[in-house]
Design a protein around this nucleic acid. Structure first.
Lengths: 186, 186
DNA sequence: GACGTAAGTAAACGATGGTTTACATAGTGA
DNA sequence: TCACTATGTAAACCATCGTTTACTTACGTC
């Protein structure tokens, strides 16, 4: 009977999920290259060897973590007439920093991780977004969206410059809102 | 007499310059993390140990290579009434890909290299650019410039997506020109 | 021409870190 | 109860790569 009350101490599914969750946090915080397998497994409270056993290695774990973090609905569920304001709010005010973009940037320095990031970004973000924009200019609109988004995150997170780091200056925020809104309005 | 006709086989300054030149190429092509000291010294035709002897290590060599590649005049020598067209031409049509931006991106994944890249970017690009823009909105203008530039390079070089990789689609190019021009016109 | 110093090389060193191997233990069915 | 398998751990493994050390060789000078 007591087996039904509490979960068994050894549960492969639970362990696997704990590793994946820890991986998302550590990869997001430190990037692919500087995230240590031992960091992730220590956070999950398990042995480092389980990364290879359950995921097939660090790279596959990164792929799983990135895949789990990518959700196109974060962009395509917004009303188009308020797209600018709302997407900036989502980007700038996100307190839980498990945004996938920093993970993507960190992957860019590693050729294998970059290949994975490229594929997932195209399949899970670029294509859905292009379909959501629609019309003959969908390609250009999506490219514009990617450039402004990548520029924003690169500027804010990867190269924190002077007093702009962290918060978003009001005039800059207004400009960003107009940029994003113009993409859907054009 | 023959010592005056041809340079001596052993010339520290020449060797140092050869290493620096090779470093610029290899760092630009492979990024900080994946560039091997042995790659650089092999290209320069010297022994790997000379990197530590002449530059104090890989990180210091990266700093020297990045510093040599950064030239603010690449942006601030343009006429303001044609800034948009000309800056895009400079970014997009640059056949020799020793643009410092890819080097900066690759540095972002390494905490030590990132600190160096941040400092050099601020001192050698951000501040001169801000001064060149001038006026009360110089901060915001510079930030806008950085975001669009970083977005462009991140999109084109770091995350080459589908058919946009390599060339720049004409409508996208036109949008970029307007973006950059708007920064100086506002 | 021998000598001392600077320039350069070859080889080994040592730290890092993902992965593998050998082993221990908890749950499960006959 | 007794295996048997799945789960997990500890420790060693092993490749990578920047760096250091010991040695060699060329150049300038007395």
């Amino acid at each position: 009977m007591e087996t039904m009350i509490e979960a068994p101490a050894r549960d492969a599914d639970r362990t696997r999920a704990a590793i994946l969750r820890a991986a998302q946090q550590v990869f997001a915080a430190k990037g692919f290259a500087e995230a240590r397998v031992r960091d992730i497994t220590a956070l999950a409270g398990v042995n480092p060897s389980l990364v290879s056993r359950y995921f097939g290695g660090k790279l596959k774990l990164f792929e799983a973590a990135l895949d789990a973090a990518l959700d196109p609905r974060l962009m395509t569920d917004l009303p188009k007439d308020e797209f600018g304001k709302m997407i900036v709010a989502r980007f700038a005010d996100e307190d839980d920093r498990i945004s996938p973009l920093p993970m993507m940037f960190s992957a860019a320095a590693d050729s294998e991780a970059r290949a994975i990031a490229q594929r997932l970004l195209r399949e899970r973000v670029f294509e859905p977004l292009k379909h959501w924009f629609g019309g003959g200019d969908a390609d250009v609109k999506t490219a514009r969206f990617m450039m402004v988004s990548l520029g924003f995150f690169a500027y804010r997170d990867q190269l924190p410059l002077a007093e702009f780091a962290g918060r978003v200056e009001p005039r800059l925020r207004q400009w960003l809102e107009c940029e994003f809104q113009a993409i859907v309005d054009d």
